[in-house]
Nucleic acid binder design. Structure first.
Length: 499
RNA sequence: GGCGCGUUGGUGUAACUGGUUAACACGCCGCCCUCUCAAGGCGGAGAGCACGGGUUCGAGUCCCGUACGCGCUACCA
């Protein structure tokens, strides 16, 4: 068997769509599993849309996910000569013909309507389909404008076996003589893909289900060009809640992969999540497991286990807690707490840098403390962003962090005894020679005993005094993380909040 | 309109070639743990497999029909 060669062929839209990311992932997994090659090709036939910036987002997304390609990026627009040359051959062989019918200018809305109407009745036969080749060439030579159409057989059935959707059949008479080359000589999608896939030696085409019908047309082109037909595997679509198409226009940045990077996702997590959208491992050895490393996915991926129904990407617009799929968020949390700490630490550092609260000493003399603190906080965070927001009190000096009103109310103002106890606690903790989990606990509990209050009063008060929050790690871990000097500072400051 | 594809709890999925009370994960609720929250442990609610027929001793799994959804049907990709 010849070497597997697959490609990811996005159009340059300026960002990597989550659906595109999954298509890229499946191609990548397939290529890596078979020791094949993944080729990146930008489908920029539609010239107006194409620009370097438009490609940048896609490259960034793939790079972030770690989906490396072996060849490319190639640009479809740079192969137009090959496309035209192929058309020339088809014209000569009679598998394509020139259509001199004048172009009809139509708006998108009109097209939508006309397409439906036109299809209602059988299209009239094209007068140029059986035009005399010599006369056709003469008209062309005389400078008359024309498009080139493919001569689709009048009868018979187009068939191919899709690796996901199974046997696909379509009557040839249901396929119009599609345009290959526009009046301006510009090659169209179906032509470009086939010519390029042939040139690049693509053996397996793995792409979205929206191309299922195009495949019949493309197979016709492979035949006309006398080339072997690759295997096809079409992927179910990823839909938005409500089963509508997931689009940037309608759903905003949620569809763009870089959003996940910017909002504190780990590539490992989003990759894992995407892999499970429309595919699942063979039950048995992997039953009831959801977390898979990239290496495992490469090993256990199979096109046969992709299923046919579209998946819904669940999220609630306008709900900060559910800005994206809850399961993706959960999975990200799993990766944050289980990946090696030295993988997480630099990511948190980058996050803090971006938030403007990074200090160089975190990477030098305080590196050990920094790692420990990250290790402490990672247990309860689900995105990297939270290290800079919820985690802010751990990194900043003084009391440069927000106090959550409900927390202040519940843990500080509730009991007037705190007014006198907090300063005492501050004094006792400041006086400790060694500031550890054990010594701080002893000091705090002793004060509680002496004063006849429950330790919880001091503990919760201290938590809010130190972090402004009502929730967080165990208080003695917090004390140690915040350190002796800030602890004293913050406990005394808290008294001023008591009003 | 035509053609194609699909339909298992709110979401993602499982259920070998038809055979125990349809399983797992996320989310939700409760309990335990506990200084809070999260994690973790335990338990619970939630689908009878879109609907209607049929085949069969027996169907989520096979067949037919209907509904709904999605896709395609461009000198877009």
């Amino acid at each position: 068997m010849s070497k597997i060669r697959v490609r990811f062929a996005p159009s340059p839209t300026g960002y990597l769509h989550v659906g595109g990311a999954r298509t890229a992932l499946f191609n990548w997994l397939y290529a890596r599993q078979h020791g094949g090659a993944l080729i990146l090709r930008i489908e920029d036939t539609d010239l107006q849309r194409s620009s370097p910036e438009m490609v940048q987002g896609i490259l960034e997304g793939l790079d972030w996910l770690g989906l490396d390609f072996d060849e490319g990026p190639f640009f479809q627009s740079s192969y137009v000569e090959a496309h035209r040359e192929a058309v020339g051959r088809m014209l000569e062989a009679g598998s394509a013909y020139r259509d001199f019918t004048p172009k009809e200018e139509r708006s998108d809305a009109e097209i939508k309507q006309q397409v439906a109407e036109a299809a209602r009745s059988a299209p009239p036969p094209n007068p140029y389909r059986d035009f005399d080749p010599a006369a056709s060439a003469a008209k062309a030579a005389a400078g008359e404008p024309f498009v080139v159409r493919f001569r689709v057989p009048r009868e018979g059935t187009s068939r191919f076996e899709d690796l996901v959707y199974g046997l696909q059949e379509r009557e040839y008479r249901e396929i119009e003589d599609f345009v290959l080359l526009r009046t301006d000589g510009h090659p169209l999608y179906n032509l470009g893909v086939v010519v390029d896939d042939i040139a690049m030696g693509i053996t397996d085409v793995i792409r979205g289900q929206d191309h299922l019908f195009n495949t019949h047309k493309q197979i016709l082109l492979y035949r006309a060009l006398g080339q072997p037909i690759p295997r096809f595997a079409h992927l179910p679509l990823i839909l938005a809640p409500g089963k509508e198409k997931l689009s940037k226009r309608k759903h905003g940045e949620i569809v763009s992969l870089t959003t996940y990077r910017d909002r504190g996702f780990l590539p490992e997590a989003i990759l894992n999540f995407l892999a499970l959208l429309g595919w699942s491992p063979e039950s048995g050895e992997y039953k009831d497991r959801e977390i898979f490393s990239r290496e495992e996915l490469v090993r256990i991926f199979s096109l046969e286990r992709i299923h046919k129904s579209n998946a819904i990407f669940n999220f609630v617009e306008g709900d900060a807690r559910q800005w994206t799929d809850q399961k993706a968020l959960w999975m990200n949390g799993e990766y944050i707490k289980s990946l090696p700490l030295d993988r997480i630490v630099p990511l948190v550092a980058a996050e803090l840098r971006q938030a403007g609260i990074w200090r160089e000493r975190f990477a030098t003399e305080e590196a050990a403390w920094f790692a420990t603190t990250v290790g402490l906080l990672r247990e309860r965070y689900r995105t990297l962003t939270e290290f800079a927001t919820l985690g802010r009190p751990y990194w900043v000096e003084g009391v440069d962090f927000p106090f959550e009103e409900p927390a202040v109310e519940k843990n500080l103002r509730k009991d007037a005894a705190l007014r006198t106890l907090l300063p005492v606690l501050a004094d006792r903790l400041s006086a400790l020679d060694s500031f550890t989990h054990a010594t701080t606990e002893e000091a705090l509990r002793q004060l509680a005993n002496e004063s006849g209050v429950k330790a919880g009063l001091l503990i919760n008060g201290a938590r809010t005094a130190l972090t402004g929050q009502a929730v967080g790690p165990g208080i003695f871990d917090v004390l140690v993380a915040v350190g002796q000097s800030r602890t004293g500072q913050r406990l005394r400051h808290a008294v001023t909040l008591l009003g």
